[in-house]
Structures are given as C-alpha cells and as structure tokens.
Design a protein around this nucleic acid. Sequence first.
RNA 1: CGAGCCGGCCGGACGGCCGCGUCAGGGCGCUUCGCGUCCUGCCGAGGAAGGUCCGGGCUCCACAGGGCAGGGUGGUCGGUAACGCCGACCCGGGGUGACCCGCGGGAAAGUGCCACAGAGAGCAGACCGCCCCUCCUCGGAGGGGUAAGGGUGAAAGGGUGGUGUAAGAGACCACCAGCGCCCACGGCGACGUGGGCGGCUAGGCAAACCCCACCCGGAGCAAGGUCAAGAAGGGGUGUUUCCGUCUGGAAGCACCCCGCGCACGGCGUUCGAGGGCGGCCCGCCCGAGUCGUGCGGGUAGACCGCUUGAGGCCACGAGCAAUCGUGGUCCUAGAUGGAUGGCCGUCGGUCUGUGGAGCAACCCUCCACAGACGCACAAAACCCGGCCUACAGGCCGACUCGUCCG
RNA 2: GGUCCUGUAGAGCAGCUUGGAGUGCUCGCCACCCUGUCAAGGUGGAGGUCGCGGGUUCAAGUCCCGUCAGGACCG
Length: 117
Amino acid sequence: MLSAAHRMRRGDEFAEAIRRGRRAGRPALVAHFSVRDVDEPPLVGFVVSRAVGGAVVRNKVRRRLRHLMRSRVHSLPRGSLLVVRANPPAASARNELLAAELDVALERLLRRRGSGS
RNA sequence: CGAGCCGGCCGGACGGCCGCGUCAGGGCGCUUCGCGUCCUGCCGAGGAAGGUCCGGGCUCCACAGGGCAGGGUGGUCGGUAACGCCGACCCGGGGUGACCCGCGGGAAAGUGCCACAGAGAGCAGACCGCCCCUCCUCGGAGGGGUAAGGGUGAAAGGGUGGUGUAAGAGACCACCAGCGCCCACGGCGACGUGGGCGGCUAGGCAAACCCCACCCGGAGCAAGGUCAAGAAGGGGUGUUUCCGUCUGGAAGCACCCCGCGCACGGCGUUCGAGGGCGGCCCGCCCGAGUCGUGCGGGUAGACCGCUUGAGGCCACGAGCAAUCGUGGUCCUAGAUGGAUGGCCGUCGGUCUGUGGAGCAACCCUCCACAGACGCACAAAACCCGGCCUACAGGCCGACUCGUCCG
RNA sequence: GGUCCUGUAGAGCAGCUUGGAGUGCUCGCCACCCUGUCAAGGUGGAGGUCGCGGGUUCAAGUCCCGUCAGGACCG
C-alpha cells in the first residue's frame, strides 16, 4: 500500500498530469506522467471510472494498483506526477497481468524522458 | 418418511509476514502553539452499508390573518418519535390444511366513458320467435301485443315454482338471493347473529374527473458554524455633541443588516417595480430600485458539526401480538482523490473424478483419496425507524397435509 | 444530496392525451421489375415478449404499483 506522502490529492495536479503529461496506454490501464520542477516526492493518483464496475470492484482495482505502485515509486524522479487510469479489463485481470502492463507503461514513459525531448 | 407452510439466525474460522486509516502513548526534528517523521498498542464496512420509495431526529430559513390551489393516505382498533411501517381483528378472494393475497371510503352529489358485435348498452330495447287482428295471388304482406325462449356481447334490468293470459310479464303469490330502513343481542370498533317492515330489483368503471375524512411550511451535513483569504462601500437603530427648532440636518461612538465591477435590455419610482411571502390570491408591513443576459474578477484552504444513540445484549414483568416498563451490562469505523490490499499455512465450503459402504436399485446419503476454485450479493460518507431489491451456502424452532407403524 | 427524462421491428422515432384488433413514418433487409452491369428508381413482402413482474378493467403499448437498464440537469 502506497504511503500517504505519495498520494495525489488536488484536482489541479490530476489535471496537469493528464492534460500536459505524456501518456502510455495498455489494454487494462493508461498512465499519464509529467514532471514539475520542484523538490518534492513523486505523487501518484488513480482514476477508476464507473465503466470498470460497481463500488466494490472499483475500490479493489484502485487498491491493487496502489499496492503495485508501492514497489515502483522509487523509480520515479522527484517532482513526478503520475496518474494511472484503469480501463474495464482491469477488473478481471490477474495481478501478474496488471503488474506487467504497469511495468511496460512506466518503462515507456521513463525511457522516452531519458532519451531526451 | 415424503411434500408443504411460517418465523428467527449466520453470512466462512484460526494464524503468520509486509502495508493503509482513526485514536492513544513514546522518541526525534523544526521557530513556541503546532506540524512532520519513526516506533508500539487498540480498533477498523453490511444484512442489505444498496435503490432513494416513505417517516423522523438534527441544522438553517420562514411563520398576524383569511381564501384557493397542490401533494399524500384510505376497513377497524392498537403500537410507535413518526410513517405509506408493524401487530391483532373484520370483510372479500384462494388453498384439503398450516397459511397466503387485497390502493379494502363514496357510483340512489354531479359530469364522463362502456370499442367491436348486437334489434337494443343506460329516464332500455322487437332481429328471430310467440300471440291477436286485417289483407291475401295461400308462398306471404301489413298493423298491434309480448322481454318467457333463441341469437350477440365482458355486461341484456333478480332466481325457482305456481296463479294468470290470446301469448306474456312481480301483473299477483310462495320460497330463496340481494338492497334500504328499524329493533334486539354480542363487540371499544370495523362488523356479526336474529327478528320486523318496505318496494319487487337498483349494471360496471373513481389505479376517469370528482366528493368525503384525515395529514402535509421550505430546504438539506455541499445543512450550518468558526478561522483564514478575497474587490470599494452602502443602509438601519440607539446614544452623545453641535446647528436648527413644526418636521429636521451634520459629526463622533456602539450595535445590527446588506454588499464584486462593467455593458446592454425589460419593468418601475402620483398609475407602486420589488421584498417580507419560497405555490397563488386577498390583506398587512417595508418600499426606490429591481430583474434578465453577456463579459471580466474573487473564492473553491483548515477546523467544528462527526458519532452515545428513539443504541446493542441479558434477565424479569405487562400484552394474543406489534411493542412497552424495570434492572443489569457493553461502548465496537469516522475516511474526505476517500482508510480493508498483497503473499502464505491449517480447517471448512463448492465442483469434478476414483474407490468403498448403506440400499432391491439409483441420478440419493455417508466415508476416504486426488485435482480445481479464494469461494454469494455487495461496501459506510450526518444519524436513526421502515419498505423494496440482490444474495453461494448453512443452522434452529413452530405448524399443516399425505403414507406407513404402534 | 436533490430533480427529471427515456425504454415500441435491425437502427432512429411517432402512437400514451381521452384505454378498444400492435397502427404508422424514415433508413436498412429480402424477392421481383428496370439496366449490358452497378447505383438510383418502381412493385411487393418479411420482421414486434411494446425493458421486466404484478394489479385495476370486459379489455392495458396506454392507467396504477414495484423493479431493471441507460441518460440528463442542479447544488
């Protein structure tokens, strides 16, 4: 479970990551990523729409994603804004699949940034 | 043993590791309050938390009075904070029965509707038929009577038998059904039972308008409050001083109320816009601005409300019951981008397969082994009481019917 | 938290007011005609649990109650 320091809470932070950040899509999830020029811990937010399922399903999807992010936050640079949006397939996906897709998405976002733009 | 019916309850159990949230304690850091961080400990979703169909608590706003709308409920009595909920009973319907179902007031206040078919469908109605009379080319035609029979329809204006008649008819009579009124008895009451009288008979629909009785102010925890932040002021009341002195004016202080700017347009200041008044009107009070559209600007942080309550459990008592009273005992989520996740073990469960046993036999039951499946419906968001809906599987109790045995 | 709308043929709709044989519109579909062929056009035809369950009524797509799904708006 992700600690409180890394939780994205403000609406404008979500808006910045989604509107101005890079995006990497997978069948089960979409990741939005941007970096602010501030010396703060990386923030991670989750978006699970009603299309994914009922309240129980949505809660569980968000908690599983948050758990998977726990071991991956350290790879994000300081000042990062990351929003993970879940798609309907995430509801029935097993954890290994969810983790694999999350890794692919993160790897793409970070590599693209590293190669310079 | 097999069918069934009603009620109550459970909603996997135990444990390990890593995390998350509230609270408590402790350590460390920063500039004190406080905040951040780390450690330890307690606790951490439901029977429906759901749908939002009702009823309340709570909070704010409104509330002289009258009238008209609007919405809801609909047998009686009781229970309750209240209800459209619950209980008991009554009536009607269903079932062999336990029991179940019912928006269950009024159709002789009024209006309206009853398609098609049919002769006729709402102060009834002669198509066929039956009877009488007249005419006649002896096939029939015309006129009249008749609601017993046929036919149509969801529904055709009581039923059976008799008297009667040209044929018939509540025209008359007996019994029955049903209606209205009266009386007696039982019941708090809905109503039931019995008796008498009346006229011979009255269609259905109010989940059509409507009538009757009763109930209902509006908004909702994003209520509401405190602090912070934010553009510039305006008004009222009281009081003091001064001017003035019939009314009044100016300044200071205190308290209270309202309030961002610009542009365009509507209405309005004798004829009264608008507000109090948030359904509308009258009426009363205040009253010179107010309403709409567009553009621009500001805020969108923290804390309180926030969980002890018509509360749960147990015992006794009252009551057929719903429920209530008394005593004891317990305190068990409070998040705010929203806390329950991940990995694993043992047992339980479900499914599949194999073997064995019970049995006349099995697709039934039980036992053992192996494999698969994390395994019903679904998650608090101010709090309660109900209703409705979803739900794998299981437990307990009362009762009914059938079969067999005693 | 509050308020409202929709569900009818493969698709989009009308019909609900004031109940009376599921009636109809546009596109699509099928067959035939037209053409050397296709399209367009013409003729004919098929296609319906009226979201679901219950009730009122002689009779329900229509009225009433419940329920499910989808959608919109306000704070």
